[in-house]
């Protein structure tokens, strides 16, 4: 049985010192998983994400990580990530090692990991200082005599955590919207936790196979967690809470206010239901505010053969 609570899934699959990828480019960022990792007090993690976003800002402020692998360090559309900056610039709450790529470099690392290749070639980094500060970015000559190309090594997380709209009980997972590098990060990982807005019947998955991004074959745990991506979003289910992204810019400016926020919103609740209850108490109309209008796709006919 793959269906698990978030507490069970994190306890079973995420260990101190692990390399973790919680992917999702602006969309589908699984804050529910991050908060549970913080609550369970994981330490010395190597956190990988193209855009660390607020999710890793919070985990790093809570002292979960010893290293960050990334390609864009910002609060998207707002400004800097203050907690990660404090860790990098001042070693607060602890020094943070960084390993930095460009977006394409991170994408290529996941592809390499997913395909079990020793490296992945890309045309990037030429003429820049990036390879000087990250010796894992290398250049190789083409064996066909047509020039040089940059290469990056595979990234194989111990655990990848993906948030999506829906999956069946076996973990066959469907997504629509920004697909990011979720498929690549999942196939690259040794173990995969999928967190979904809805658990659906296998029949629903089978009615639209082109929309299945991750097969149950590679999924170890399925967690049913509606609104588990807040303040990020799930396309068609709820909008990004841009107001919180702006609020975090203020909360995270000082270590004290950050820790007070973690105390109240992460350590101060038992689980994600507790977080959601607090959210709804603070702003009773929150899900109405974040509800998108409806824009349904037209169904397609796959046909019946035989």
């Amino acid at each position: 049985m793959k269906i698990a609570t978030m507490r069970e899934a994190i306890a079973r699959y995420v260990h101190d010192g692990d390399t973790i990828a919680i992917e999702g480019f602006t969309a589908f960022i699984c804050f529910a998983a991050a908060h549970e990792i913080i609550r369970q007090g994981r330490r010395d993690l190597i956190l990988c994400r193209m855009t660390p976003d607020l999710i890793y800002d919070q985990m790093i402020a809570a002292g979960c990580a010893r290293k960050l692998v990334f390609s864009y360090l910002g609060n998207p559309g707002v400004g800097p990530l203050h907690c990660i900056r404090r860790a990098v610039e001042k070693g607060i709450p602890r020094p943070l090692e960084i390993e930095e790529y460009s977006h394409f470099g991170m994408v290529a690392r996941y592809m390499s990991g997913a395909a079990r290749l020793p490296f992945f070639p890309l045309r990037s980094y030429m003429g820049t200082d990036q390879p000087k500060v990250n010796p894992r970015i290398q250049f190789v000559d083409s064996p066909y005599g047509n020039g040089q190309v940059a290469v990056v090594p595979p990234l194989n997380p111990d655990v990848t955590i993906i948030h999506a709209q829906r999956a069946d009980a076996s973990g066959n997972t469907q997504m629509w919207g920004l697909l990011g590098v979720q498929k690549e990060a999942a196939f690259a990982a040794r173990q995969v936790i999928v967190v979904v807005e809805e658990i659906v019947d296998e029949d629903i998955i089978r009615s639209d196979p082109n929309r299945t991004v991750i097969p149950g074959l590679i999924v170890d745990a399925v967690v049913h967690q509606p609104y588990g991506a807040h303040p990020s979003y799930a396309q068609g289910y709820y909008d990004r809470d841009n107001r919180f992204y702006l609020e975090w810019d203020q909360i995270s400016r000082e270590e004290a206010t950050t820790l007070a926020w973690l105390d109240e919103w992460v350590y101060g609740v038992d689980d994600w239901s507790g977080y959601l209850a607090k959210l709804e108490k603070r702003e009773p109309g929150i899900w109405k505010r974040l509800a998108p209008g409806e824009a349904w796709s037209q169904p397609v006919n796959y046909g019946v053969y035989g």
Binding site: T51, F70, S71, Y72, L73, G74, P80, I84, R85, V88, E89, E100, Y101, S102, H103, F104, L122, R123, S124, Y125, M126, T128, Q130
Partner: peptide, 17 residues
């Protein structure tokens, strides 16, 4: 760093291609 900025994102390959 005196100030840690966001880094490349896709800018490096965009500038190349």
């Amino acid at each position: 760093p005196k100030v840690r900025l966001p880094g490349s994102g896709g800018a490096c390959e965009i500038a190349i291609h």
